[in-house]
Nucleic acid binder design. Structure first.
Length: 462
RNA sequence: GGCGCGGUGGCAGAGUGGUUAUGCAGCGGACUGCAACUCCGUAUACGCCGGUUCGAUUCCGACCCGCGCCUCCA
């Protein structure tokens, strides 16, 4: 088995991945708060860790991958109130939209999708444990985590308590013993959703759900936890505090964090308002183009998102699909082909998910396929498909890829076929002026013709 | 202020103590009735200044610039 190395935020370097139990790998990734459509920045961890999920499934017999849905949160409460709709209707709608969008990006569904509202009892139990062990306290209807009770609080984000308080945004509240303490449970007013608890009617703080759901579904200590860099502090730092202090163990072995999507060099975020919704992008670009763009940079690097990047992704995918399409000959991929363990694509991904390196290997295979004798093509085609599958790419039929429509008023394929037939007759009669006029007519309708030795085929321009 | 990340050719983006990926776009050629695809060839790089070294884009140090986090955030 090739050695898998992963960059661990805890150490700040790449480490060899050693599972807790090689028979059962546990992976958790922070999912969305469902009060809105997700933007392409939200999609980056989903796609990056989808590649990790695929890779782990290749390397180990069982992988349990959980990605939560945060369906109770103040932003949700506010959005539902603004819309005048029940919270459950809002969260159901955006949960479904999220799942549709991620499916369009060819992200596999996780093994488990726990919802926060279905685990409030687990959260209350965990908070009670923390209170019993002296790591949390009740105050004015709140339950708060006592960060001073944990000696190495700040280990993940590499900052001391003093450093944190130097920042001006710490919420100083009278009920806190210490300004850095964070909320585990907070009181709800009558018009806010709430659950009965030992601290009165209320709702959970932001961080406790992940810790509680991990403990419930994956265990007290898991292999890998992923998410965006902006979750390192406070979210993941506080998860560690909760998990370690409640269970008296380590919480996560490997912390993985993806870089940001930038717009004009600036972080894309809901608060900055410079985001691009996946849903809107999908109206213009196939999901695979978005996925390819996301995988074209290493997951920890910033990725500047632009029209140009998407056009390049489209062009590059086209060339890979051209290799599969061939030049008119029919090639059936070799049956039963399996990517070798030491295949370059496998090795690239095992090196901390080096997707750009893996993609460059796809090009190498595609070039070999283009140049190969007919006897060698089935194996190379199977190799290209298998390698791309590890990245979740090249999943369409090549002809369908080139013919996918982008608008409603496009020419139908019957009209196109009729014109192609007419052009073929014109060519046969050596009436090239007429043939070129038809090519021109179709070109203006966004249809590109290509003559192959097996006949003329067409594709739609984007 | 504290902590962290990064600056690679027109663009995107890996990587490496020497032979200097890959793609997109460009240029030249082959192929084609014309094209497209493909193939062959080709130009353009490692922020700045020092140091270590036979040799530095890579290691070390300083500097400049950009970005992020410091309790909303993927």
């Amino acid at each position: 088995m090739p050695t898998l190395t992963l960059h661990n935020t805890l150490s700040g370097r790449k480490e060899i991945f050693t599972p807790i139990d090689p028979e059962r790998i546990t992976l958790y990734v922070c999912g969305p708060t469902v009060y809105n459509y997700v933007h392409i920045g939200n999609a980056r961890p989903v796609v990056a860790f989808d590649v990790l999920f695929r890779l782990l499934q290749r390397l180990y017999p069982q992988v349990v991958y959980a990605r939560n849905i945060t369906d109770i949160d103040d932003k949700i409460i506010n959005a539902a109130r603004d819309n005048g709709e029940p919270i459950s209707a809002l969260t159901a709608r955006f949960t479904e939209a999220f799942e549709q969008d991620m499916a369009a990006l060819n992200a596999l569904p996780p093994t488990l999708t726990p919802h926060a509202t279905e685990h409030v009892g687990d959260m209350i139990g965990m908070i009670e444990t923390l209170v019993e062990k002296g790591h949390a306290y009740a105050a004015e209807g709140h339950a708060l985590f006592d960060v001073q009770s944990m000696p190495d609080y700040g280990r993940l984000s590499k900052r001391s308590l003093d450093d944190m308080l130097a920042g001006a945004r710490v919420e100083v509240a009278p009920y806190k013993k210490y300004p850095g303490d964070f909320v585990l449970w907070k009181p709800s007013s009558d018009d806010q959703p709430g659950w009965e608890s030992p601290w009165g009617r209320g709702r959970p703080g932001w961080h406790i759900e992940c810790s509680a759901m991990i403990a419930r579904h994956l265990g007290p200590l898991i292999d890998i936890h992923g998410g965006g860099q902006d979750l390192i502090f406070p979210h993941h730092e506080n998860e560690i505090a909760q998990g370690c202090c409640a269970h008296g163990t380590d919480y996560v072995r490997y912390w993985l964090h993806n870089g940001y999507i930038n717009i004009d060099g600036e972080k894309m975020s809901k608060s900055l308002g410079n985001f691009r919704l996946v849903r809107e992008l999908l109206k213009v670009y196939p999901g695979e183009v978005l996925r390819f763009a996301l995988l074209s940079a290493h997951y920890r690097s910033p990725l500047n998102f632009s029209e140009e990047v998407l056009q390049q992704a489209r062009s590059t995918l086209d060339s890979l699909y051209y290799a599969l399409l061939g030049r008119g000959e029919q090639v059936t991929p070799q049956a039963g082909y399996r990517l070798a363990e030491d295949h370059p694509v496998n090795l690239a991904l095992c090196d901390d998910l080096n997707t750009p390196e893996a993609i460059s290997e796809l090009h190498r295979i595609a070039a070999a396929l283009n140049k190969a004798d007919d006897t060698d093509k089935p194996a190379l085609k199977a190799e290209l498909l298998a390698a791309a599958d590890l990245l979740g790419l090249l999943t369409h039929e090549p002809s369908a890829w080139f013919q996918q429509g982008s608008g409603d008023n496009d020419l139908g394929s019957e009209d196109i076929d009729a014109l192609i037939t007419e052009r073929a007759e014109a060519k046969k009669a050596r009436d090239f002026a007429r043939a070129d006029a038809i090519r021109q007519q179709l070109d203006e309708a966004g249809i590109v013709l290509e003559d192959t030795r097996e006949g003329t085929r067409w594709s739609r321009k984007m």
